[in-house]
Amino acid sequence: MDNPGMVVMFQTLVATGLKGFLGCHTVIHEAALLEFFQNGSVRDGLVVSTVNGVTVEISEQLFSETFELPVKGLTDLSEIPKDIVFDAKNIVYFSGEPVSTSGKKREMKIEFQLLCDILAKKISVKAGSFDAITQEKFLMLAAITCGVKINWNRLLFNILKDMVTAGTRQEKGYAIQISLLVENAPNLELGESMEFPSSKILTEKTVHRYISLNDKVGGEEVADAPRVKRTPVKKAVSKKRPAVGAATEPVAKKKRPTKSRAVSSKDKLEILPVA
């Protein structure tokens, strides 16, 4: 890529050990996924479900082996040292100064905006706005950017357990990953498969489009600023127009010539007999 910031961001993302989790094959089984979440639950630390009448069990060890995820490091994001969080704030924001971790995504440099989208839609998969920077997302971003060792296997497996737990606000995600796990289940025959949408796969082309769209959004926000200033002027003009239409003088002027025409016509009728 010709964007150095993007290159560095992807290099740090690969260095975390998440490549196997984010870079799976692109075939998914939609019907099996729906049934998996419908019948899913957590039993004795395992994610258990039934697909086409066959029981599917996913353990934390199977999860780690399938996606080659790191199993050493912090298991609680709140344990990330405060000085690292401080450094991350200086690195990711345009201002280069510490900013509140609950700010908006557009305050970040473009490569970290994309990283936040990856974390929000493919890692944490939380319900709510993807534009808001939550404490959890920022701590993940800080860990990736500053090279903090995280037990990603434990973290991601706990998120999967939340997905199948009834009553949680967790969105149903990990479509590609679950499809791969279900495919490897013994004695399970799956129906038709479909390819994951190519627009959701990050390539040089889709990343370039992401940059172009975000730059365009920023330009529109700047262009809209003068319009806000002109709004009171438009309102002032609109107030004057009804005032002119509501005046009674123009109505009187229209009636006066009507009367004068009536008088002139009578005069002509009186003159004609004389002629």
Rank of each mutant, 00 (worst) to 15 (best):
R261E: 15
E30G: 04
V8D: 09
K229I: 08
L74I: 06
G45K: 12
L13C: 06
V274N: 14
L22H: 00
G245I: 15
K104R: 15
D131H: 09
T50C: 00
A15Y: 03
V85F: 08
A225E: 15
P242A: 01
K137W: 14
D224L: 15
K255D: 14
K259Y: 13
C116M: 05
K161E: 11
I80L: 13
Q113N: 03
K240H: 13
V244G: 07
E68S: 08
K82P: 10
E195D: 10
L119V: 07
K255F: 13
L202C: 02
E249Q: 12
S78A: 03
K19C: 08
E221F: 10
K239L: 06
L181C: 03
S59A: 03
R43Y: 14
S129M: 02
Q135F: 05
P98H: 12
L18A: 00
R227A: 07
F67W: 01
P186E: 04
V47S: 12
N187T: 12
K200R: 03
H208M: 08
G96R: 00
M140K: 02
N151F: 10
M6L: 03
I271N: 01
V71N: 08
V217Q: 10
P232M: 00
R241V: 07
T168C: 07
L156K: 02
L269N: 11
I28L: 04
A15C: 09
T26Y: 02
D224V: 02
W152A: 10
Y174S: 01
G218W: 09
K235D: 05
K234S: 14
G20F: 03
Q177L: 03
K161W: 10
K253V: 12
V47H: 07
K105D: 12
F86R: 10
D267R: 14
E57I: 07
D267Y: 13
E60L: 06
A175N: 10
G5D: 00
L202T: 07
E171N: 15
E65N: 09
F112H: 09
I144D: 08
K72S: 01
I150L: 13
S198D: 10
P197F: 01
K122P: 07
T134L: 05
G147I: 05
G40D: 06
P257V: 15
E136S: 12
F63Y: 13
I58C: 04
K234P: 01
N151H: 06
I176L: 00
P242D: 13
L213K: 07
A275G: 09
E68K: 11
S64Y: 05
T66C: 06
V125R: 14
I159G: 04
M194C: 01
G219R: 10
D117P: 04
A223V: 00
S260N: 14
V71S: 11
H29K: 05
V207H: 10
M140A: 12
L213C: 11
Q61D: 07
F36K: 06
A175Y: 06
A223E: 15
V217E: 11
H29G: 02
V47P: 13
V42P: 05
V7Q: 13
Y174L: 05
K205V: 14
V263C: 08
V14L: 11
K200T: 06
A236Y: 02
F67H: 06
